[in-house]
Design a protein around this nucleic acid. Sequence first.
DNA 1: TCAAAAGTGTTCACAGTACACCCATGC
DNA 2: GCATGGGTGTACTGTGAACACTTTTGA
Lengths: 233, 233
Amino acid sequence: MRRYTQQKRFLFAVDCIIFGYDGQDLKLLVIQRSFEPFKGKWSLVGGFVQNNESAEDAASRVLKDLTGLDGLYMEQLHAFTDVDRDTAERTVSIAYFALIDIQKYKQQINEDYHPVWCPINQYPELIFDHATFVELAKEKLRYKAALHPLLFELLPPKFTIPQLQNLYTCVYNIEFDKGNFTRKLLSTGLLVKLKDKDKLNSRKGAFYYKVDAKKYKAGFKLFLNFVPQSVRL
Amino acid sequence: MRRYTQQKRFLFAVDCIIFGYDGQDLKLLVIQRSFEPFKGKWSLVGGFVQNNESAEDAASRVLKDLTGLDGLYMEQLHAFTDVDRDTAERTVSIAYFALIDIQKYKQQINEDYHPVWCPINQYPELIFDHATFVELAKEKLRYKAALHPLLFELLPPKFTIPQLQNLYTCVYNIEFDKGNFTRKLLSTGLLVKLKDKDKLNSRKGAFYYKVDAKKYKAGFKLFLNFVPQSVRL
DNA sequence: TCAAAAGTGTTCACAGTACACCCATGC
DNA sequence: GCATGGGTGTACTGTGAACACTTTTGA
């Protein structure tokens, strides 16, 4: 009754929700679909899982194809399995969300896909159930970043505290008190102060910091009450 | 190049990590596999996703088959997709974890599967990568229960605060101060005090409480710092 | 009356918040 | 010197942790 041979097989895809930060705003990467059905419509980046790769492998491959980069932050979001979610044929999609610093990587984006960075709250209509993916990913980003030092993945290796504060403001749509923000941040011990300053955004200039890689890895799980509970959703 | 017709199709299963609480200890439900390969070996409860159902549908069906119950707490844990995870044929498995009160439901367990409740830290060797599923589920349970009022799903409708405290102790392997525990719990406003007492566990007796269903639903997302951060993993 | 568990009260330390104030610099 | 944004100091408040104490009841 449950023998393998009598079971259906399904198509199996991955789709990536790619968040990027350009120093100003939080963005979402979408592409124009290059194949039928819905060729030319807006879509998340995705692809089918091949015989010799796991879903993680496939998602990494898709990310690399698009950005030219390995080693981006990436994690599984959710498996979407509704019977009719793909109108062509039953397809299971595993969604991954990834974080990237737009400044650093924008020149490496593969233009074959016609990728576009959209404001996170203002992206075009997407095919299938991809908008559901995005909304869930946004929720998870907010949830997780409230507890773990996740947002560093969106910044360049050198960044200032005001830059980081602006990023938090983008993610949570609230203002943070700069004094308290700075103290809380430095109290985690995850940051290393550098000698030089960023002078673009103010006359006085703000010191650059970088992440202490060792402490970052070790301290990833236990972090902060950075964001008021009421804002975390 | 990415046409649907040229893609592989894969088998697609669900597996359930079922946690139960019997008033004393936290348990895991495992079964003896009734079909090849590995017939007779220990395994999580699972099944293949059918043509006309989503993975959630399939997981609910599997849970119902085993326990006779609808409406159990259930959520998607993770999709496991390693190429060789199933030795018979490439199979993607979506793992769900479920919470049930053993006391209430034990008589309804379907005996065809030879199900056994094992202590959560002492379960038999499981087939394939099922042990990985269980460990991830334990981690997620601890993580989520530290932030959300999840553990009520493991208790009967009427329960005492000392019972709940014992459950927390099982999950986190730490002692909780009863005074602080009680205060923190009642301050959430999620509980309603009942008139009667449980007299089995003490001479004095402990008042029963029940969950305020409306507040429970509304307050599920914002809960407590119930568990010290260092214990959450 | 005593033991055992339920439940309450009290103190202390510290983390989060609000907000005032000082600092460095380019114009 | 003054406007601007970076950075520090401080006082207040609330929450969490530790632990002493009271209550209830069966044996």
